[in-house]
Simulated assay, not measured.
Amino acid sequence: MLILVLGLVIFFVLHSIRLVAPQWREKSMAVHGEIRWKMRFGMITLIAFGLIILGYTQVRLEPVWLWFPPVWTRHLAGLLVLVALFFVGSALVPHTTMKKKVGYPMLIAIKIWAFAHLISNGTLADVIIFGSFLVWSIVSFAVYRRRDRKAGVVRDQESGVQFDLAAFTFAMVSWFAIAFYLHQAIIGVSPLV
């Protein structure tokens, strides 16, 4: 459990820098260079993910069950993950409608993904992982939206159907890859069973 918690702490501390110290982040990027900053950020993120996966794999060997979710929650989770992947695509593809309307589609994707996994898993480790991601994404979204309103940010960039279709295509391809291969290969659990 310690490895899992350590991975989560590293991940959330790193990904909360922009949330709690945006000026320090910008100053550090200016001093060290944006590419070097992003490379360090990416490497530490990979280490954190590695610790989370390793810790989860270890904890899963002796699960502490809090509840036993009904089978239908797995089907609902699969659908919700598809929706979450659409928001991921909307964050990655420029000029999407979701990016224009909500500003932070990646945080919405994390909320949906975490909620989907919370309702379909019932162990203590699942609650720790997905509950912490859900709380972090809710807080981050609220802070960023409040900050944008205070700064008078207006998202008036053009959006088009072709960009939304690209996000949808990303979601479908990603969902099939995750459902039929990646989830089993990385996590060790097939979401289709």
Results as ranks from 00 to 15, higher is better:
164 D>G: 09
47 I>M: 14
147 R>I: 08
50 G>F: 07
114 A>L: 00
123 T>K: 09
110 I>M: 02
179 A>D: 02
122 G>I: 13
72 W>K: 03
61 L>S: 11
115 F>L: 14
64 V>I: 15
118 L>P: 13
176 F>Y: 07
76 L>N: 09
61 L>P: 11
144 Y>G: 04
118 L>F: 04
184 Q>C: 00
70 P>E: 03
169 T>A: 10
74 R>N: 10
170 F>A: 01
184 Q>F: 08
118 L>E: 08
98 M>N: 01
180 F>V: 02
181 Y>L: 08
56 Y>T: 02
140 S>I: 11
94 P>D: 09
141 F>S: 08
185 A>V: 06
67 W>M: 02
69 P>Q: 06
75 H>D: 01
72 W>C: 10
99 K>M: 03
149 R>S: 11
95 H>C: 07
84 A>V: 02
177 A>K: 11
43 M>N: 07
162 Q>Y: 04
50 G>S: 11
185 A>M: 13
64 V>A: 13
102 V>K: 06
159 S>E: 12
186 I>N: 05
109 A>N: 02
142 A>T: 15
176 F>P: 00
118 L>D: 00
153 V>C: 01
127 V>K: 08
170 F>T: 01
157 Q>W: 13
178 I>N: 03
112 I>E: 00
121 N>A: 08
145 R>E: 05
90 S>W: 06
140 S>V: 13
176 F>A: 13
68 F>T: 14
167 A>I: 03
54 L>I: 08
96 T>I: 08
106 M>A: 10
186 I>A: 00
185 A>Y: 03
79 L>C: 05
122 G>C: 07
93 V>N: 03
58 Q>L: 12
122 G>M: 15
182 L>H: 07
66 L>C: 04
156 D>S: 12
124 L>G: 12
67 W>V: 14
128 I>F: 07
67 W>T: 08
81 V>L: 11
95 H>A: 03
148 D>L: 04
115 F>T: 07
100 K>D: 04
157 Q>M: 14
136 W>V: 12
118 L>R: 10
112 I>Y: 04
49 F>S: 04
179 A>C: 03
186 I>Q: 03
138 I>V: 15
167 A>F: 06
184 Q>H: 09
78 G>N: 15
131 G>K: 06
146 R>T: 09
117 H>Y: 05
146 R>L: 13
164 D>I: 09
83 V>T: 07
74 R>C: 14
175 W>Y: 05
67 W>I: 07
150 K>L: 15
150 K>S: 10
153 V>F: 12
46 L>S: 14
132 S>W: 12
109 A>V: 01
57 T>R: 11
112 I>R: 04
119 I>R: 07
58 Q>G: 05
120 S>W: 04
61 L>M: 08
147 R>V: 04
46 L>I: 04
47 I>H: 07
187 I>W: 07
149 R>L: 14
131 G>I: 06
59 V>F: 06
107 L>R: 02
54 L>K: 06
177 A>I: 05
166 A>S: 14
158 E>K: 11
94 P>Q: 13
42 G>K: 08
144 Y>P: 02
148 D>R: 08
54 L>C: 05
92 L>P: 02
107 L>I: 13
166 A>V: 01
126 D>S: 15
